[in-house]
């Protein structure tokens, strides 16, 4: 080996050695690509494919073409779910400004502030299922805290989770609790990175109060805001556990959302209509796709800008 002359080396270089700059990134990417394809991309197409069949998950599949989609367009439960999903999207957004407000409030140095921050962050740490259970008790018209407050004012407490008009808002309100904590923590970390120099400079220019927040602080918090909006939209679209634990989509399906409706039709005790469930999943996917494309486009623009 040692006797080889320097001029031999280029000739003896293997194909890999000659191309390693092109290949190495792919080797590193390979595991991720493989598993992403296997567990994310493939199932998307698989479930779109299944949505063209009538299938109970056990027996033979029957081709029904667009039948499931036609049925979906004529299904009241689908429109109820869609409408509720929109409510979720709109009202869940409240988590962002409220999270910001709490973050600003907590962004000060007083004794024990770490404890207060932890307490505010606490709802995000506990499981959604537990949050759902706690709020189910709050809302209980016989012994819940809501009932006690109502009765204090001499009113008859509403059965929030049994009222078709209130139930969705009741669940969204419960869902907001941990979501606000999440947005708050995002803003708290964002606030750590706000440059003191700029604030100093703004002060010298006589900026204060809301003007200071709007023109100086918020622009610097843009990355945090972006992430907060992203996680909130995703949280709203995949709202599932709260509904499962608090109402199971009831009363009579009026608190359903697409994600839970899909689960109910394809996987719950009275379901196992895999084709129909897949059709719902496909519609939900298309809705998310609009949003995901926007998100990817923004990311791409940002990267290019840098």
């Amino acid at each position: 080996m040692n006797t080889a002359t320097r001029s031999d080396i280029p000739k003896n270089r293997s194909w890999y050695q000659r191309n390693r700059f092109a290949i190495t990134p792919w080797i590193f990417l390979a595991p991720a690509i493989l598993f992403f394809t296997l567990y994310v991309i493939a199932p998307i197409f698989q479930s779109i494919w299944i949505s063209f069949f009538e299938w109970n998950g056990l027996g033979a599949k029957t081709w029904v073409g667009m039948g499931n989609y036609v049925e979906l367009m004529d299904d009241d439960r689908f429109y109820t779910s869609l409408k509720n999903n929109l409510w979720w999207l709109v009202l869940y957004m409240l988590a962002v400004p409220i999270g910001l407000a709490i973050a600003l409030f907590l962004n000060q140095t007083v004794t024990g502030i770490r404890l207060y921050k932890s307490l505010f962050f606490f709802p995000f740490v506990i499981s959604q299922v537990v949050v759902g259970l706690i709020f189910t008790w709050f809302y209980n018209p016989n012994f819940g805290i809501v009932a006690i407050i109502w009765e204090f004012f001499g009113a008859t407490p509403p059965a929030i989770l049994a009222d078709e008009d209130l139930v969705t808002f009741g669940i969204i309100f419960a869902g907001l609790w941990p979501q606000i904590a999440y947005c708050m923590i995002l803003y708290l970390t964002g606030l750590n990175n706000v440059s003191p120099d700029q604030i100093e400079a703004a002060r010298l220019d006589n900026a204060k109060g809301f003007g200071m927040l709007w023109h100086v602080i918020l622009p610097q918090l843009k990355p945090a805001t972006f992430i907060a909006v992203v996680v909130t939209v995703i949280g709203a679209l995949r709202s599932f556990d709260m509904i499962a634990i608090m109402t199971g989509g009831g009363p009579w399906g009026s608190s359903n959302v697409l994600a839970y409706f899909m689960f109910e039709t394809s996987l719950s005790e009275y379901g196992f209509r895999m084709g129909y469930g897949s059709a719902i999943a496909t519609v939900l996917f298309l809705i998310m796709l609009v949003y995901i494309s926007f998100f990817l486009y923004r990311m791409y623009q940002d990267e290019k800008g840098n």
Binding site: P251, W252, E264, Y270, G271
Partner: peptide, 17 residues
């Protein structure tokens, strides 16, 4: 059948309210 049962029972519940 499961699907009929689900819709039926939701209907019963709604009727009772």
């Amino acid at each position: 059948p499961a699907e009929m049962a689900k819709a039926g029972m939701e209907g019963f519940q709604e009727f009772m309210v």
